[in-house]
């Protein structure tokens, strides 16, 4: 390991893998995934409940479940960083030649990796179920899953930002609050007041990544639009992580 780049990559990937291991060793994630799979598995009941609109409801339920799993996974990062700080685990790690930015990015990547695996499992499950129930593979659902992945990545970055200067509880509450507000950002744009304009500029716009309505109503979604939305999400993440990095660098680890 000679170059600084190699060392930096090694540091980030080490923290990423450790974060992944930590979460994979907690039971709560498996309980959540199991609950989700049970809900998806009970899909054949929807026909009785919806009076023939089973397919639309399955899309809606599938999309909602992806969002919920994405949110819960993203919250892990807020818990994880804040807990490392509270339990002073971070003191041991940062006393070694590990940069603070590498630590934060490693945590972020670790949670994104978990989220990706979770969303992938769920997407494959839903796709197979749709195929089983309707006999056709609905590849459009992949677009929705991809945009939800973008949403999960953005929420994870929000979690990293709050965890860089708050304890677990405020970090988690604020992340959920931003997630909720992020779905109403479009409304703020039309409001026109200075505060709304400010919030519109600062908050994430999850509306750009939300294709549930289009999918539920059988409207076409272009890959170009989905890719552009995910690129917006990644750019927003870059800005948030840079800010989190600046804050974390100034913070005393005591």
């Amino acid at each position: 390991m000679n170059t600084n780049l190699e060392k930096s990559m090694n540091d980030m990937m080490t923290i990423c893998k450790t974060t992944y291991t930590r979460v994979m060793r907690t039971r709560s994630l498996y309980v959540l995934l199991l609950a989700v799979l049970v809900l998806v598995g009970a899909a054949h009941l929807y026909d009785d409940l919806t009076g023939g609109r089973q397919k639309e409801l399955m899309y809606d339920v599938g999309a909602a479940l992806l969002t919920v799993v994405g949110l819960f996974t993203a919250l892990v990062v807020a818990f994880d960083i804040a807990r490392d700080l509270r339990e002073r685990v971070v003191m041991t790690l940062l006393s070694k030649p590990l940069g603070r930015s590498h630590y934060l990015l490693g945590k972020f990547l670790g949670v994104v990796r978990i989220g990706t695996v979770n969303l992938l499992i769920l997407t494959i499950g839903i796709l197979l179920l749709l195929k089983w129930e309707h006999g056709v593979m609905r590849w459009d659902f992949l677009k929705l899953a991809f945009s939800t992945w973008g949403m999960m990545v953005m929420t994870t970055a929000v979690g990293v930002l709050f965890a860089s200067f708050f304890n677990e509880l405020p970090a988690v509450i604020l992340t959920v609050a931003v997630f909720a507000l992020g779905h109403t950002t479009g409304v703020l744009y039309h409001d026109g007041s200075p505060i709304s304009s400010l919030l519109f500029g600062v908050l994430p716009n999850f509306g750009l990544l939300d294709f549930k309505a289009e999918l539920g109503n059988g409207l076409p979604i272009s890959w170009k639009l989905v890719t552009a939305s995910v690129l917006y999400a990644l750019a927003y993440c870059g800005a948030l992580l840079s800010l989190a990095n600046i804050i974390f660098h100034r913070r005393d680890i005591a």
Partner: peptide
């Protein structure tokens, strides 16, 4: 530099060997 903090708390979800491996990786 090697450092032992006061009242140490480490990655409790890891086994002793895994934790040392993590430290070794961070130490390049």
């Amino acid at each position: 530099v090697g450092f032992l903090p006061e009242d140490p708390s480490f990655c409790t979800y890891l086994r002793a060997r895994e934790f040392l491996d993590l430290c070794g990786k961070v130490l390049h």
